[in-house]
Design a protein around this nucleic acid. Structure first.
Lengths: 229, 229
DNA sequence: TATCATATGACAAGAAAATGACAAGAAAAT
DNA sequence: ATTTTCTTGTCATTTTCTTGTCATATGATA
């Protein structure tokens, strides 16, 4: 659960403290002591989450949050507000600007990291939930099941993703590099030949219901899932 | 069928009336007289359902609904719109925004509670008092009993809730994070691995009647209750 | 045939899940 | 109020499953 966190806090003491705790928890921390600086930093690297103090010199935390929420690029960065105890009433009002959660100072490291975890956890992207079906082979992302001719097939996580991708993009050749990008993710360093191995594993799994010929090898180009019999 | 319901309604008379009826029906009611206040309340406790007046001072009901639907955390809270007498345009718009149902004022307490029940049944079946049965295992929320093949099973509170949730949402994989949100509650901070432990405890309890294989592990994805034999 | 691309089998490192044990806390009983 | 019994969340450990890579076999192509 290591994330890049942007901490916006003007008080040096608290900044240090929080920074220490977050680092301890394995996060990469970037610090800013003003909203303006936060914006600059954000231009460079988009954080996975922002911890934002309410009271800041210059532009207030609320204003910064509002800017974040209107900007396409930063719109989806979760924000946790840090508010001082006491004047919760006003501050809570500001939460409608789109903070995901808030913590009142003082807070324990434990609570902080728990909230961070909870907020991050909800931001997990979910893929399409539509069931795909090709030549008697059906894959259901919701139940995470693959059934070929009424036989349940067993495939590992990677094979599942691979099949899902190919079933949703049939009749089209994908090079190993493209498959790596789409199925593994584009910043993964993996040998291209590895794709071969997974294709084989996938075919092996599909053999149970006789769907192994669904995936065709296109020599010199890559692989293709063919819908025609 | 006790649910936590957030009522957003600016007119004091109606607010009181509805509040009374809902409490009568055994629900926990939270009231807000503006969209802004509703958002504040929601930060604290996520309701099981929101009753939302169309016309509100400040931010309108529609806008609030829209915010709910884009927020990861509130996305799944069912919304019932309260609209003044049947303007079809409103209805359509309301439903498009993601309301689950709408009621036109004036409405009878009877109708209100019927619709609430219907919506909950659809969106949050584990909130209802209906008995669930899967492959010879039956769970009755009313008597708080679980019986598998005529054998009474003993399970702790958390295991009971976990099983109830999974039985009302079969054939669907839930990640640990999702299970935490649905079974533990969304403001609870617990390690994801804890889910594993409770799944194990649940399986252990189900072993007595041989239903332990009902709960399947989907590696890399989460857990699933399988309805098929 | 010589060469290149793909298939296949094996394997070790690593990730994910299952399991057992434990202490703090809540609830119930006294 | 105190003791006893359960429940819960977390950790450390073990077990099981995945995955990327390599070496080698097989097959296509020129």
């Amino acid at each position: 659960m290591a994330a890049t966190i942007l901490l916006v806090e003007d008080e040096p003491g608290i900044q240090e403290l929080v920074k220490f705790n977050l680092s301890q928890a394995g996060h990469a921390v970037m610090c800013a002591d003003s909203a303006e600086q936060a914006l600059m930093i954000t231009r460079e690297t988009l954080p996975d989450l922002m911890l934002l103090d309410w009271m800041l010199p210059g532009m207030s935390g609320i204003e910064l949050a509002r800017i974040f929420r209107t900007d396409v690029r930063m719109k989806q960065v979760p924000i946790i507000m840090l508010t001082a105890r006491g004047d919760e009433r006003d501050k809570v009002l500001g939460l409608e600007t789109g903070a995901d959660d808030y913590i009142t100072k003082p807070f324990s490291p434990r609570e902080l990291s728990a909230r961070i975890k909870a907020v991050l956890r909800r931001r997990a992207p979910q893929m399409t939930e539509d069931r795909v079906e090709v030549r008697g082979l059906s894959l259901d992302p919701v139940s995470h099941r693959v059934i070929g001719n009424n036989v349940a097939l067993e495939l590992g996580p990677t094979e599942f993703r691979l099949l899902h991708f190919m079933m949703t993009h049939p009749e089209r050749v994908y090079s190993r590099a493209q498959l790596l990008d789409h199925v593994w993710g584009d910043h993964v360093f993996v040998e291209e030949r590895t794709v071969d191995v997974h294709i084989r594993r996938l075919r092996l799994a599909l053999e149970v219901s006789g769907h192994e010929d669904l995936i065709e090898t296109v020599r010199g180009a890559g692989y293709r899932l063919s819908a025609q019999s």
